[in-house]
């Protein structure tokens, strides 16, 4: 077991004027771990995710990532080109709405290939080959490789977004409500796919969701947020089955039974 955390978050704080986005969040994520962040709307989970992924600049704190080349580095102190390179190589970000993470005017194969070209791939045949391989892995028929994502269903768009993100072999994936807005049968398939990919590629992932059933199936660990603060954290099944904090108890007891 390696002792170097892949991602060390220390005291990350983001304020919107007088309002707290997230306050003093710290944790370590180790290679191969999947962590869920849950909480109601406005609890600060997306703010936190965006601060970690470099989409928002936190007011305080450090986000230290164990880079492949230079070892642990605070990504908030990196130059913009360095951070952009990181987000194309070691990192990936899966948006809730596939449209935010895809280029809708470009073919499915182009969407996957673009990320490869961003890290230097130039051979057309290789790029197309990788794109087709990845479409297959996310269960999109090869025949659709030249079609635009606008002609895809919501579930297919989401799978395409995942293929586009994983093609460069990232080590850390940020996911914002990856199954939100999809119908339940598509959700189940996507969950299974994400789980297999995480296991087979040895990925670490941070998944923001409000769906406790999703975190139970996907996440090893769980953080519960309320009003910008982490109120409880631990193993997923510990937090869900033996919640300590009043808010977590309320959250768990509010799930609808099917």
């Amino acid at each position: 077991m390696t002792d170097t955390a892949l991602l060390s978050v220390r005291g990350v704080t983001k304020r919107y004027g007088a309002h707290i986005g997230c306050a003093d969040v710290s944790f370590d994520l180790y290679p191969g771990e999947v962590m869920g962040i849950v909480g109601e709307s406005g609890s600060g989970k997306s703010t936190l995710l965006n601060c970690m992924a470099g989409h928002l600049e936190p007011d305080a704190g450090a986000v230290v990532f164990d880079t492949a080349v230079d070892g642990p580095r605070d990504t908030l102190l990196m130059s913009e080109p360095e951070r952009r390179m990181l987000s194309r190589t070691d990192w990936a970000f899966v948006h809730q709405h596939a449209r935010d993470g895809l280029r809708m005017g470009v073919s499915a194969g182009g969407n996957v290939g673009e990320r490869l070209m961003a890290v230097g791939a130039r051979h057309y045949g290789d790029i197309r080959g990788s794109a087709i391989d990845w479409l297959g892995r996310v269960e999109i028929n090869e025949a659709r490789v030249d079609d635009r994502p606008t002609t895809f269903s919501g579930g297919m768009q989401q799978r395409l977004q995942i293929a586009r993100n994983l093609v460069t072999g990232p080590r850390l994936v940020f996911m914002d409500e990856p199954t939100g807005g999809l119908d339940v049968s598509v959700q189940a398939r996507l969950l299974d796919m994400i789980r297999s990919l995480v296991r087979d590629m040895g990925l670490s992932a941070i998944i923001v969701t409000h769906d406790l059933a999703v975190v139970r199936l996907l996440a090893d660990r769980l953080m519960v947020m309320k009003s910008g603060h982490v109120v409880e954290a631990g193993l997923t099944d510990q937090v869900l089955d033996d919640p300590k904090h009043a808010y977590t108890q309320l959250l768990v007891s509010s799930i609808l039974q099917v």
């Binding site: 771990e33 189940a188 090893d220």
Partner: peptide, 26 residues
């Protein structure tokens, strides 16, 4: 720490519960 428990459950400690909890359609 959580990761020690995760590793323990993966390698050493098995649990047969009364309930089956799986990803649907697998």
């Amino acid at each position: 720490a959580p990761r020690e428990i995760i590793r323990l459950r993966r390698e050493v400690l098995g649990y047969v519960s009364q309930f089956l909890r799986v990803v649907p359609r697998v």
